[in-house]
Amino acid sequence: MTTAALAVERPARATRVSPLLWALPPLVVLAGFLIYPLVLVGVQSVTNEDGVRTLETWRSVLAAGEFHRAIGNTVLIAGAATAGCIVLGTFFAVVLALVPFPGSGAAARAIDTVLAFPSFLIALSFTFLYGAAGVLQLGDFLYSRWCVILAEITFYTPFVMRPALAALTHLPAERLAVAASLGARPGQVLRRVVLPEIAPAVAAGGALTLLLTLNEFGIVLFIGAKDVITLPMLVHSKGVVTFDYPSACVVAVVEVALSVLLYLLYRRIFRRKGARGADLVP
């Protein structure tokens, strides 16, 4: 107890200041490498090549037909791919968890591994599968939006399946047995017991998928369809193909606004409900 007497009161003040100081370094990293660049993107979008503040770039970009097509494509592809992922991810999760077969564990892991792959891998293999000279010889299908959507469904299905599967493992088997013993047919059990239980997890996974498909770049780039321009593609082509920074920045600002809005919505809805499993951590 002699040591105790030496240090009265002093540590109390230290502990009040230091948590803020300790949190500073990672935030500085983020501020320097993400926030500051984003702010400059915003500034650049209202500055022309001679360094004059003007809304001219905004006016011309927003008026261009390619911008409208890009927004339309982006939203359509993201929406359709997300819907597909929700349907497919739920189906996979329900079969794997509730109608298991020998090897279903391996199948689940195989679907999961897709998460560790780069998304362009899917696009690349699609060129062989669906390309004009490939397995199925589907002609121009490869260069259509539908091919991009199918590729995104393939890649993003695990993002829905994983939380759904996690939610299903929390569903006690007894509840299904009881429902069946009360006379509910499988379809009814699915609709009235299983789906309500996993709905929050599926919704969270779906929201994350929507966010990621809005931002998807690799798949669209690799499929290389000239008609399927999305917002990220537009940023890329304006930024490093034609070196028109101000225009690229305008598109980027629009895209960030869209994504961040969706992201804030996502956090607001799912953080509060505490729908786990749909977290970023796979």
Partner: peptide, 14 residues
Amino acid sequence: VAIPSVVVGLGLLV
């Protein structure tokens, strides 16, 4: 997570 990777790249360039 919410920021498109292309925009992260553009931002760093700018």
